[in-house]
Design a protein around this nucleic acid. Structure first.
Lengths: 344, 344
DNA sequence: TTGTATGCGTTATCAC
DNA sequence: GTGATAACGCATACAA
């Protein structure tokens, strides 16, 4: 077990002081070229590594940031984290990940731990359960950047990066209308969550804009699971008149929908055009590829990181509050591309 | 911006010294109940939080571990990380993630950064490109636990958690044989990687054990991508005699295989039985669910973390070297379940 | 039972 | 241009 080499070790070897070594290593101008050379050489020879922990204690900056997500094994969140990572790594930051499983206690716990660990910033996709804004205010009071992504909460001085769920819902529905669908149903998520409410509102607005009836009976709430989508489908096919399209707030529900529709002898997209939401990997791997609304998670992660970097660079006390809203992309695939003529 | 409360602040308020406060906070027995009460109360009142960075500098332990993976947005790795996290979080550890994109420079870079950050342990799935074991030896020399998972390298004193790829290949092939397949082809990965070589060897051994011919012409190397699987399929269907089953080392290649086979008018599983590898989420979402070999990533993560914890607890210098080999699980789904009678 | 002093490794502020 | 010293926040060996 080799002991850690410190600047004192180098200093001793060179018969100078640690301060000088530090100066040489940090490219401090007030030092002679000769000693700098000497130090650099010796440091390399002795395989010196700066101790970031000591530096962190001294400077107050750890170059660690915390990311709080419901869970990491979901394509969307994993990709957001990837975006954050890719952007931050070149600047020397490390990403500490925390999972909450959408539980409030866990969120508080994680914030606490990250604060104790002295992270330089916290990025979070906040759960609906998190009502105690006092915990969040602790972050603000410490003056460390807090940035929401995907799911946010309105807080003064806090930036956020989200996508325009309304627009996503609107685009999906508009696409269905423009390809000739007349009676479009909606698989909605939990509409107490703003993301699902917005998708629903976008759907509704598109119908009205194009002079189609909006009928609450054609809105079915489902969880974001294949099985839930299958169950919802059984409700759907009892509707009269039968819809000719479905905009689903969830790709997984859309997968269940397609399975069940096929099981009932319906053809897709000829009998039902379908658009999902999230661009889960599965949508492009299915034999019948599923149209979906991409949430641009990579860009979301990148943007979140960029805002953080800006915030760090604005050395002064100026609080920046940025609300970035990304535009979702509609990806048209087979599930909404009728092979035959338009019905219109 | 509220300043950080330290034990000195508490001490001042109580007219005692920081040492006493520290003792009270750490449940040191050598302190009177009364002062402990007092300190605890005051600490709560002032909202004191221990500074982990200072503690880390003092103790040499950061309670951070580093995880190095090719990329995080792959279901397998995300799930392994989840397993690690779930196991370690209750013990106060945080997980720092690093991505390498399978590039050697990036791996070295990450190791270096983690070492500088003074992590307490490093878990990695090592790329084939990583040939410089000197970097890895730096970790060992520092006496910080290094544990391989999934992809390992043989190093004295280094533990690893892998799955038995040979057994996975064997089980998959055996299953195909037992369901009546006579001529089984293999989509192999890059067989310079031991994981792919082992899967191939398992396939080969199963054939021989069951008195079926092994023929290298029926082994096609493909990348782990849908498109690669489609291309390989075009080679496959030119074989004479035509195989009646395929064991694919990659689920993605299997997806491409199925797409292309259907496009050529073949029925699955009646004309071709198919088993993939990895249990990617897509395999269970497809209309035709794909049989696959599950690598138990959650258990892999958990086990990796457990070995780390053991290593940390064995305070003495005893080096533990554990080689854990997990048993893969064969998941039989529709792609290898012939509806009709066995051909035998 | 409590206080004093020291060190973890670094950088910054003084001197010289 | 370089050295000495203090400080970041904490825990602990030693003294009292």
């Amino acid at each position: 077990m080799s002991p850690r080499i410190t600047i004192y070790d180098i200093a001793r070897e060179l018969n100078i002081t640690a301060a000088t070594v530090s100066r040489a290593l940090n490219n401090n101008p007030t030092i002679s070229d000769k000693t700098r050379e000497l130090v650099l050489e010796k440091a390399k020879e002795m395989n010196y590594r700066q101790n970031k922990v000591a530096l962190a204690l001294k400077s107050g900056k750890t170059f660690n940031v915390g990311v709080i997500v419901p869970r990491i094994d979901r394509s969307f969140f994993a990709t957001v984290i990837k975006g954050i990572q890719d952007e931050l790594y070149p600047h020397g930051y490390h990403v500490i990940i925390c999972q909450t499983y959408d539980q409030k206690e866990s969120e508080i716990d994680n914030i606490d731990a990250l604060l104790n660990a002295q992270v330089d910033g916290i990025f979070m996709s906040i759960s609906n359960a998190m009502t105690e804004l006092s915990e969040l205010n602790r972050i603000i009071k410490k003056n460390i950047p807090l940035i929401f992504f995907d799911r946010k909460r309105e807080m003064p001085g806090v930036s956020s990066v989200t996508i325009n769920d309304f627009e996503g819902g609107y685009k999906a529905t508009e696409h269905l209308i423009k390809t000739g669908c007349k009676k479009i149903a909606h698989f909605a998520g939990d509409r107490t969550l703003h993301i699902y409410r917005d998708r629903f509102e976008g759907y509704k607005k598109a119908l009205l804009d194009y002079k189609l009836d909006f009928d609450e009976n054609y809105v079915i709430e489902t969880e974001s699971k294949v099985e839930a989508g299958m169950e919802a489908t059984n409700q759907l096919i009892k509707l009269n008149p039968l819809p000719d399209a479905v905009f689903s707030s969830s790709d997984f529900a859309a997968v269940g929908l397609i399975k069940e529709l096929k099981a009932n002898g319906y053809a897709i997209p000829d009998d039902f055009s379908i658009v999902g939401f999230s661009n889960e990997p599965v949508t492009q791997f299915m034999e019948l590829t599923i149209s979906s609304v991409d949430q641009t998670p990579l860009e979301m992660g990148r943007m979140t990181a960029q805002i953080f970097l800006e915030q760090m660079n604005s050395s002064n006390q100026v609080k920046i509050e940025k609300k970035v809203v990304l535009t979702p992309r509609l990806l048209v695939r087979m599930s909404s591309t009728k092979k035959v003529k338009n019905k219109k």
